[in-house]
Design a protein around this nucleic acid. Structure first.
Lengths: 111, 111
DNA sequence: CTTCATACTGACAAAAAGGTTAGTACGTAA
DNA sequence: TTACGTACTAACCTTTTTGTCAGTATGAAG
């Protein structure tokens, strides 16, 4: 275990800035399998508001984790996919699942 | 890659509830090496407010990730340590560091 | 009797995040 | 001309999160 000094720019904070918040990881995860349109993402994450979805997608694109592809058709067709960097959050998500399972197992036994 | 369905209780959301937010992971990380007193934690995480530190410690204890040990002395001496479940977030933090490094490397090269 | 050190509480305020709703742009097709 | 479907914007509001600051309790030590 290497040490992390808690400064304004430490790895934990960097990652939190990039994928922190209620929605970003959920969106990224949905895009892992294949590119999706806005309307498709809305279906996969039923309780996100349209505004948040668009807003979060925009920041994901700006920070280089996602790509927006505009087909220039009418009615509009826009597809979101992941960059290599975006794909790199998958191990993180896997760890979160692992932790969640561990937690639930522990807590069921102990109350 | 197993599928995660985005419902009200999915592993991603569970983990976010437990360790999401600006401070919890930073606090947990500081406690990895050894138990610390409140005042020691404050030094390690200089920009957290005392209120947030106490508040987050309380929720970490309530959710079973940390332990509060009161020595019953005066002036007060209280020590915070991790449960096994609390320790289980270390791989998650390691993944965050890994991701942050990967991200920074990519972004320095591409702008 | 006053001061000290430490952990903690509570009232309040500011800031950030998230949500709701109405509206825009655009070619197509009726 | 009108309605349609899709992605997106903007104004406004509510909720959640975070921060500030002034206290409280305690026994020891001066």
């Amino acid at each position: 275990m290497k040490s992390i000094r808690i400064t304004n720019r430490c790895p934990i904070r960097t990652t939190l800035e990039l994928v922190g918040g209620k929605w970003k990881l959920l969106i990224l995860f949905q895009l892992m399998e294949k590119p999706l349109r806005l309307s498709e993402l809305k279906k996969q994450i039923p309780d996100i508001s349209e505004k948040m979805l668009i807003q979060e997608l925009k920041t994901l694109v700006e920070s280089g984790l996602a790509i927006r592809r505009n087909f220039g058709e009418v009615p509009p067709r826009v597809e979101y996919s992941l960059t290599d960097t975006g794909r790199a959050v998958l191990p993180l998500i896997e760890e979160m699942r692992h932790f969640a399972l561990f937690y639930e197992e522990k807590m069921v036994k102990k109350g």
